[in-house]
């Protein structure tokens, strides 16, 4: 019988290794996905995940029980993984892509023909700023105001980067779909 999240958290507050391990195994898989979407490389994602859990275990008293713990942990993972974004931005590695063509996506859901891993891989090929804003807005559900605060950019920049990210992603999805249909 799986331990409840409250029991695990209580054990983690007491620094019980078994509880920490259980919580790690419960959330690690999902949070690793979060980190992978924000970090350019898997190594950086693993580092971010490691730091995320260290924060979770050491700042557990900051969790007031308002809302699901998974959401709180996810936010910590996002903010931790965004450090990679800031580091790359300071290095000037952010490359703006050409504005994508306004192409109509195929009928149905554009992501039906691909797995989540492939989709994440495709998103990962987007420019860093686009990818980050897209993740924050579309998947995490942050508003543009929150994104601007998190990333240190203006709301307009956030909106434009989101739009460009969407267009670029749609373009690549269209190309992928065309290639797949062509092969069929």
């Amino acid at each position: 019988m799986a331990d409840t999240i409250d029991a695990l958290l209580e054990g983690c507050r007491r620094n019980q290794p078994a509880a920490q391990r259980a919580l790690y195994e419960r959330l690690g898989y999902q949070l690793m996905g979060v980190c992978l979407r924000y970090c350019p490389t898997r190594e950086e994602a693993e580092d971010a995940l490691q730091l995320t859990f260290v924060k979770l275990f050491t700042r557990l008293e900051q969790y007031r029980g308002q809302g699901p713990f998974e959401a709180w942990a996810r936010r910590i993972a996002v903010t931790t993984a965004l450090n990679a974004y800031h580091q790359h931005r300071q290095r000037g590695q952010q490359v703006e892509a050409e504005e994508a063509l306004d192409l109509a996506h195929p009928d149905g859901t554009p992501f039906d023909q691909m797995s989540a891993e492939e989709l994440v891989q495709m998103i990962g090929q987007l420019p860093l700023g686009y990818r980050t804003v897209l993740n924050l807005y579309a998947i995490e559900g942050y508003s543009h105001a929150e994104i601007s605060t998190l990333l240190g950019i203006s709301e307009g920049t956030s909106k434009s980067q989101l739009s460009r990210a969407r267009r670029l992603l749609e373009e690549r999805l269209f190309v992928l779909a065309s290639t797949t249909h062509g092969n069929d």
Binding site: M32, F111, L119, A138, S163
Partner: peptide, 19 residues
């Protein structure tokens, strides 16, 4: 656009990776 984002969110909501 919102529909696109919703589809994306739905697709990647449970995305994870072995650690």
């Amino acid at each position: 656009s919102e529909q696109f984002y919703n589809d994306l969110r739905h697709k990647l909501h449970d995305f994870g990776s072995p650690v």
